[in-house]
Design a protein around this nucleic acid. Structure first.
Lengths: 238, 238
DNA sequence: ACAAACAACTTGTATATACAAGATAACTTT
DNA sequence: AAAGTTATCTTGTATATACAAGTTGTTTGT
């Protein structure tokens, strides 16, 4: 936009240091420049610098040590959202792919939806889609997702194939998950899930229902998913 | 202790306001006294008051609104630790009881423990105990817990019957969970679990392995648990 | 070579002050 | 009665300064 935006100094300090940490300019365990050094760099006072460093500490980027300095922290592991993970540490060694079974479409909320929907959400309907995830060509997880139809223009026309829903929401809509809840059952796969996951109906699968809130109060993400955990598992960290 | 402890003013402000919120003196949605009012009350400056209010905001007690005030927030729901929950909202309507099958004992870490144990933890052994949880007299969850044997004097002699492990750790040792990870499988109950949970071996149960870190770096809590989710489910919020 | 004391660094706590910007209440005008 | 303006409240951003307390490196004494 052509309008000239002002950025407050303490926010610039936050962004500069955050970018430096995320770009690898500082490694876990490194000391950031001291408060006095940063005062000189930015030609400002300790109060301004300390406000920026306090914010970074609260976001988990650094740890403050009295008399020593600001130490770069281990990156935060996760928010607590369960997702499929490999038997070996991490999924990097395995091939995770996602097929869109149902492309995003706008629809009414299903009757008897598995989480209570409030009136304002109910009015606008939702965006619904479903995905099947494979690990090394083996289907392991089927997920149906319902997102409130608010503040997400042209979402339905975006491709989700092999892409992270959360990354799309972040990149295009500046939407980030802030909190949520998850409910977990172990069930026998029914006929539909058996077919989708290529397993016997007697096979135990994890069934999860999840509700996520975001930094945009209107945008909520609901999922129902079924996961075959014979070779893999669901994992979260917080 | 007889030694006179000094408390810094901004910390006193935090504690006073936190206690007032937790005691119900302020309800969700209420405005706290303005910064200027608090300056007068505590005979101090806005910088000191703002530091306290900033800390309360970061802990989730209040939300700051430019030009309006400090609004008391909805209490934070949870850290993301899965626990057994009822079919109806909350467990309050049902009777949850806990039986200690194995009282806390000190022992070596099991060979091939389900999470990697570092050398310093390994040396000291662990505290092990197991519990069976019932909902309305029905066994629903069996949990084995291993805690690092560090900074927990006389833990083995404490009664865990019908008491929250986390509350005991908080009350007696000032230990609070800060982060963790959980791994989830759906499995058929084996003979041992079938017997404990009073179900058929073909029955699907949730198997979870969890590792929790605390504000005391030495204290970590590992659990392996099995949950029958036919009438209930595991639930977390974060 | 080692221990103690000191100096110089760091972050933590605090006071004082000023202006920017958002929200709300009170007042005035239509 | 409604709309516009103004005043007064609020939090947000920022400068300047001082002392407390923790950490680390240097110097001195044994």
């Amino acid at each position: 936009m052509s309008k000239k935006e002002v950025i407050h100094l303490y926010k610039k300090v936050i962004e500069d240091l955050r970018a430096a940490i995320e770009n690898g300019d500082y490694q876990t365990g490194d000391l950031l420049p001291s408060e006095n050094e940063l005062c000189r760099s930015y030609d400002t006072t300790r109060v301004t610098i300390r406000q920026a460093l306090s914010a970074l500490a609260n976001m988990g980027y650094i740890t403050r040590k009295h008399g020593k300095g600001s130490i770069v922290s281990e990156p935060k592991t996760g928010l607590g959202i369960l997702s499929v993970s490999g038997v070996t540490a991490g999924i990097g060694t395995q091939k995770l792919t996602t097929t869109i079974l149902q492309k995003p479409i706008k629809q009414d909320w299903p009757a008897d939806f598995f989480f209570p929907i409030d009136d304002s959400e109910s009015k606008n309907g939702c965006i619904f889609f479903s995905r099947l995830r494979h690990i090394n060509e083996t289907p392991v997880l089927y997920e149906e997702t319902f997102i409130t139809n608010v503040d997400l223009p042209r979402f339905s026309s975006r491709s989700l194939e092999n892409r992270s829903l959360f990354k799309i929401l972040k990149e295009f809509y500046n939407v980030e998950v802030t909190e949520g809840e998850q409910k977990i059952w172990a069930i026998h796969a029914d006929k539909n899930i058996s077919a989708l996951l290529n397993i016997k109906t007697s096979h135990p699968v994890v069934h999860m229902k999840r509700r996520l809130q975001t930094n945009n109060k209107g945008v909520r993400i609901y999922s129902s998913l079924f996961c075959n955990t014979e070779e893999n598992f669901l994992r979260d960290s917080f």
